[in-house]
Design a protein around this nucleic acid. Sequence first.
RNA 1: CGGGGUGUGGCCCAGUUGGUCUAAGGCGUCUGGUUUGGGACCAGAAGAUCGAGAGUUCGAAUCUCUCCACCCCGACCA
Length: 478
Amino acid sequence: MAINEKRTITKQSVDFPGWYQDVVRDAELAEVSEVRGCGIVRPYGLKIWELIKAELSRQLEADGVENVYFPIFVPLENLEAEKDHVEGFSPELAIVTHAGGEELVNKLAIRPTSEAAMYKTYAKWIQSYKDLPLRLNQWANVVRWEKRPRAFLRWSEFLWQEGHTVFASEEESRAEVGKMLGIYKSVYEFMAIPTFSGRKSESEKFAGAVMTLTAEVMARDGKAIQGATSHYLGTNFAKVFDVKYLGADGEFHFGHQNSWGLSWRSVGALIMVHGDDNGLRLPPNIAPVQIVIVPIYKDEEARKQVLEYCENIKTNFSDKYRIKIDARDGQTPGFKFNYWEVRGVPVRLEIGPKEASEKKLTIFRRDNGKKEIIELASLEEYLPKTMKEIHENLYAQAQDFSSKNINRIESWDEIKDQVGWFEASWSEDAETEKELKEKYGIVSRVLLTEKENAAPKNKKCFISGQTAKHDWLFAKCY
RNA sequence: CGGGGUGUGGCCCAGUUGGUCUAAGGCGUCUGGUUUGGGACCAGAAGAUCGAGAGUUCGAAUCUCUCCACCCCGACCA
């Protein structure tokens, strides 16, 4: 490396995880902290999460879900109450053994998720069928001491929302599992990300759940990211925590429960779906800065003219867009162009004396790298149209990439050639999935909802040759 | 937990057959000046218990031992 060579982002094609880390750092989204596996999220990165959060919040509120907050600590005995649940989570628990200067008799777990924290209280709140449905959501941090952390996708501590609902009947409860997943899909669409949604296999479902629905996302290296999940818990937890109600029939019944969550892993998915070799590419909906104006001038006179022109534009559009003027002195336009491109700002306006005196603008689009010059007067019309186009273009690119990287395979021998995802007819036998994972590091990702009631294309399982049940999607994952 | 690697100013790092190392360079920062249409340049300045501890030695960033931390690959991952 030459002494003066500028630092560049690793190319995706060379080292995708390396590229990802470079983008996270160079776009100032986050950095590693001094605590193993925990990240420091910087203002720009957190703002993206907050914009995702705002959209989801809006939808949950519109749907009548109320927010609640429970403690970060969960009595360990509560967590241990549900057998599958504790088996799933105990390896990654952080446990508080000392507090207030003494050893605790009753150890406290830091919540890895809040089923065990909330449902004992739910049992108190629910007495009658009139108390149902109970639909609450919590925005919180949770801790899971994963062996292999990764920025945003798998940090030991992360922010998310977890919804916890109770219904009188299985029917209502199951209906909501799908409904919440639909909301998650729409939040991903808000980020211009297509998702593949449906049911998880028995071994991949949530620990303690009867059934898990997932929205899977394909990263640009062909791996899968679990974007959000929605679980039908049945009466598994209700029986443990005694969540029961007196029905109109005068009998006691256990409540049917769901839980559903989306975390800032979605920010990681966003980076991995839209990012390119120059850094981040953000869809306008969740771009902290949607429009950046770079003023260009040589002398003091031009500076004054150009800045005034820029300020006017900003004033006229700041009620509709998150807009920023990069008026830093001592930074060349070229530097600023690159600076904001790494950060994925969808639209850049370049304004110099030429534009200012001719009442024009040079517009650069981050999604396709194209520049054009337009009249100032047409900006009002141009912006909404362009923002929409950028969103649609990013979505279409992601859609196109995803569909090109899903192959149909019929036999075990074809697996070794797969780089992205593949679809195959599967027996759903746990042993075969284990074999697949051990040999190739590939797992079942999702049984698409539309395939749930369809006969498999091949009657025989691609692994075991036994009777296949459905056509599943398989992939390596983050 | 297995394999690999790295710890040196805020960041990236050179130096590791012991001795002009009184620790080099780049980025960034600060001062002044010239610049500004795709990552500007010149001059000057500040900033370092060389991960920690012990040891060997006349002398340790460099050698020995112990420990610690982090990163990457894998196993794990609702």
